[in-house]
Simulated scan of single mutants.
Amino acid sequence: MAYVEEVLIHLLRTPSPTGRTDEVVQYIGELLMDLGMELTVTRRGLLNATLPGRRTRPDRAIAVHADTIGCMVTRLKDNGRLEVTPLGTHSARFAEGAHVTIFTDDDVTHTGTVLPLKSSGHQYGDEVDTQGVGWPLVEVRVDQPVCDAQGLAAIGLQVGDFVALDANPMLTPAGYVKSRHLDDKAGIAAALGAFKALIDAKVTPLVSAHLLVTIAEEVGHGATHGL
């Protein structure tokens, strides 16, 4: 379990919104090679790791995905904030209040917070509860002293930048892991732990077993092309 916990926390602390998964895939690939598993990568970026069995057919596969929900910048707003659209299907209500990391093309990162357009009860009163829910009704406040679109552009932000919702993982005294993006990083950690247990025990499965790690599940592209 210590291995699974260590891997899970590392995965959760590695941002990987759909479309920006290179870093997390590199980490998973290194873990698979450390286990001595045969590893291939498809042209669409799917990792296929194999634990040979006593028979090669029929073989079995466990499919997991390394990408998470996230956002992308769609507009630099005149008030110095960012308009975003979701990557994957998730409610803006789930994102409100989230801390985020914004990635620029030159690998500079900025932090920020997803806020409703009307977030101050002192200013808007009851409208903070009646304004509705939806991505047009939230914006990202960047942790920089900017107040207009020109200021955002000056620090390297532009339309198309990826925005990761920070996972903020924590272990509770009762042993639970609280975090965003347990879908599907908990699945990856559990699968790696299972394969490691078989390898450490020198167990050869009856049929070959594959671990398929996909990178675009949140937008509907799973493991079928890797089977």
Rank of each mutant, 00 (worst) to 15 (best):
A92P: 14
P116V: 09
R60N: 13
P86W: 15
H90P: 11
V142Y: 02
E127M: 04
G134W: 09
P58C: 15
A95S: 11
E139P: 05
L39E: 02
L76W: 00
A95Y: 02
Q131Y: 00
L47T: 07
G97I: 00
L47N: 05
L115S: 10
R55A: 15
D143H: 14
T101M: 04
S120F: 03
D126H: 03
G132K: 02
V138Q: 00
H122N: 13
R55F: 13
T130R: 06
R93M: 11
D148S: 05
R55C: 14
L82T: 10
T40C: 07
T111C: 02
L137F: 04
P116M: 03
C147Q: 09
L76S: 02
A98F: 01
D59G: 14
T56C: 06
T130L: 04
L47M: 06
E83N: 12
V138F: 00
R81P: 13
V41T: 10
F94D: 13
E139H: 08
V108T: 15
D148F: 08
A61C: 12
V84N: 11
I62N: 08
I69C: 09
V142H: 04
D106H: 08
E127W: 01
G53R: 15
T113H: 12
T111D: 07
H90G: 12
R75T: 06
K77A: 09
E127T: 02
Q123N: 13
Q144F: 02
T85A: 15
A98T: 08
V64Y: 12
L137K: 06
N48Y: 06
L137H: 03
G132I: 01
V108A: 06
T40R: 11
T68Q: 04
K77H: 02
A63F: 14
F103W: 12
V41K: 01
V140N: 11
D105M: 08
Q150E: 01
G132R: 01
H110P: 05
R75Q: 03
M72D: 01
T101V: 14
T50N: 07
P136D: 06
E139M: 03
R81W: 15
T104F: 08
G134T: 01
I62D: 10
I102T: 07
T104H: 10
C71R: 03
V100D: 05
V84T: 12
G53K: 15
E96K: 04
V146C: 02
H110V: 00
V84F: 07
V108N: 11
V133A: 03
T89K: 11
G45W: 00
I102Q: 10
R54S: 12
D143A: 13
S91W: 09
G112L: 00
I62R: 05
P86I: 15
H99M: 09
R141L: 13
Q123R: 08
R54P: 07
H122C: 11
L115N: 13
A49S: 08
G70V: 14
L51P: 02
L87Q: 07
A49L: 06
T89N: 05
R93P: 15
Y124K: 01
H110Q: 07
T68F: 05
G121H: 11
R141Q: 14
M72N: 04
T113L: 15
L137I: 03
E83C: 10
Y124S: 07
P145V: 08
R57M: 11
D107R: 10
